[in-house]
């Protein structure tokens, strides 16, 4: 129990008051507007709007690509975090700092850069084209963009845990005769799992909503490479506010659920750490 109870420190009213009004104006009010709009639709109409083949395909692609990209990032993120924390090699510092690039680089810039790289005449696109692999304008392009966008999450959640691990843990495992592989699977992985999972879910959440970097590279073909946020945009452009609202509301609910899962995870993680 670290934070003090109400009493010794001043400013509770002011801080909470400001926080709540800011949140209220900037977050709750817009959410309420969306809810109000969505409630104007009857359940049957709502279902009709979100269950068209095109919408379902967009949801499938968005969730599928976000999940796959997050899985790639889970594996590669663990690897990168491990290498950056445990090994010394030239350029390590630079790479470590660059991991945050997808946070800091505007998504539109990422979009045109990835497209320039992966389309059939790009540096990498031309390289894989003879193998019959096309990246730009296919679901693979969506995946590439989402891997880029979600790259920092797992790395950044795992790194501090890895840094904070007691050397004694691994030494004990080794002295008890465990091979390096066993020590990793039995001792290290359980320690890293909660953090990695948090990073994984965060990467999914970010990937689900991503728009800027994907639209340049995806080709945006309905039912094939059209992501859900783009479909919302298109519905808006067709003056189909009801359709946009229905898809957005569904999408928002899914994202909030995910976020809730993250917070639950980190809460359990904290409790575990606290209990240890």
């Amino acid at each position: 129990m670290r934070g003090a109870r109400r009493g010794p420190l001043p400013g509770f009213g002011l801080a909470l008051g400001f926080t709540l009004s800011y949140l209220g104006a900037l977050v709750l009010l817009p959410f309420a507007a969306l809810l109000l709009r969505a409630l104007q639709l009857t359940p049957a109409r709502f279902w009709e709007l979100v269950s068209t083949p095109r919408t379902l395909a967009a949801f499938r692609l968005s969730f599928g690509a976000a999940l796959t990209a997050a899985a790639v990032n889970l594996l590669c993120g663990l690897l990168v975090a491990w290498v950056l924390e445990r090994y010394r090699f030239p350029g390590r510092r630079l790479l470590d700092a660059l991991v945050d690039l997808p946070f800091a680089l505007p998504t539109a810039v990422a979009g045109i850069a990835l497209t320039a790289l992966w389309d059939e005449r790009g540096w990498l696109g031309a390289l894989v084209a003879p193998l019959g692999i096309r990246v730009a304008n296919t679901p693979l392009g969506v995946l590439v963009a989402l891997v880029f966008i979600g790259l920092p999450f797992v790395v950044r959640t795992v790194q501090p845990v890895l840094r904070g691990l007691e050397p004694a843990l691994e030494e004990a495992a080794a002295s008890l005769g465990a091979s390096r592989r066993q020590a990793f699977a039995r001792v290290l992985l359980p320690e890293l799992r909660p953090a990695a999972l948090t990073g994984f879910v965060l990467a999914i959440a970010r990937g689900l909503g991503e728009y800027g970097s994907v639209i340049f590279i995806a080709g945006n073909l309905p039912e094939r490479t059209e992501i859900a946020p783009l479909l919302i945009m298109i519905r808006l452009e067709e003056y189909d506010l009801a359709g946009a609202t229905a898809i957005a509301a569904t999408f928002l609910a899914a994202s909030l659920l995910l976020l809730f899962a993250v917070n639950l995870l980190s809460w359990r993680q904290r409790r575990r750490v606290g209990a240890a």
């Binding site: 709750l28 969306l34 959440a205 728009y211 859900a228 976020l259």
Partner: peptide, 13 residues
């Protein structure tokens, strides 16, 4: 959770 909410909301939404 509410403080985090905008982070998971798609920019388009």
């Amino acid at each position: 959770t509410l403080v985090d909410a905008p982070f998971t909301v798609s920019p388009v939404v």
